[in-house]
């Protein structure tokens, strides 16, 4: 089990490495990238909107309750803002995209694998790494941060709505404390995380697809395990980022 995991991790790194090499050798094939960006970005907007709006609202509600016990409800915005943009929105966006997009990548590429379309690509001189994997990784690395930034906005609107409209926190003290304590760096931290989540989702989705075993069952397994694996990896990487980012990039 452990050795299988290490082997798989190695294989995923090899895949990513090959994709990076193909990128720098100028072998990338970009005809499909717009479609990928649309499918990752535009089509994820509804689910990202819902997820981030509600997480902003729930977090605001609980923070409000906590602060009201301390008699400091005006601080609600500050804590909510930092938690949302640094942690919650990037991680939730990542996990939601892993479920939508990572799964779709594994299913699509897995189907191509078991129906010999990957073999057909080789015989027609199209390298599956340059043709399938690289554009997906690039599209995800670009679109997950974009969605996260959008989610930040939605999450904050949700938090504002609950705090100010429902709970009656003073609007100007909400925004004042929000912007007084939340720094641009908090948002950037979240976006850097999101970028790495994008890479993880696409790399695992593509890898699971390419290594899918014969038959419809193989594709099903590839799909499920891509979601499980990338969700867990996102949570682990998020923790590691939490440890590294403060001292490497900020000094």
């Amino acid at each position: 089990m452990i050795s299988g995991f290490v082997e798989e991790l190695g294989a995923i790194f090899v895949l990513v490495w090959k994709a990076i090499a193909a990128f720098f050798k100028g072998e990338g094939e970009w005809e499909g990238i717009v479609k990928q960006m649309v499918s990752i970005g535009v089509e994820s907007v509804p689910v990202v909107t819902l997820t981030t709006a509600f997480s902003g609202m729930v977090l605001a509600l609980n923070s409000y309750i906590g602060f009201s016990r301390l008699g400091a409800i005006q601080y609600t915005g500050s804590v909510v803002g930092i938690s949302l943009v640094k942690e919650l929105i990037p991680v939730l966006t990542g996990i939601v995209i892993a479920g939508r997009v990572g799964a779709a990548m594994a299913a699509e590429i897995g189907t191509m694998k078991v129906s010999e379309q990957i073999d057909a690509l080789y015989t027609l001189n199209a390298d599956p790494i340059s043709y399938l994997v690289l554009p997906r990784i690039i599209a995800a690395v670009f679109m997950v941060p974009v969605l996260t930034l959008y989610g930040d906005g939605i999450g904050l609107i949700g938090a504002y709505f609950v705090s100010v409209v429902l709970m009656g926190v003073n609007p100007s003290s909400f925004t004042t404390f929000l912007f007084m304590y939340m720094e641009p760096w908090d948002i950037i931290t979240g976006l850097i995380k999101a970028l790495s989540f994008g890479a993880i989702i696409a790399a695992i989705g593509c890898y699971k697809g390419i290594s899918a075993k014969e038959g419809a069952e193989g594709v099903g397994k590839a799909t499920t395990s891509s979601v499980v694996n990338s969700s867990i990896t996102i949570l682990i990487i998020d923790f590691i980022w939490g440890k590294i980012l403060p001292w490497t990039l900020r000094g």
Binding site: S115, D119, L124
Partner: peptide
């Protein structure tokens, strides 16, 4: 192989057409 493949063609068992 890229050159050789210009002269080779393969018809796969399940046709392997690109369904996208």
């Amino acid at each position: 192989w890229k050159k050789i493949r210009k002269e080779f063609a393969v018809v796969f068992q399940h046709s392997a057409l690109f369904d996208s």
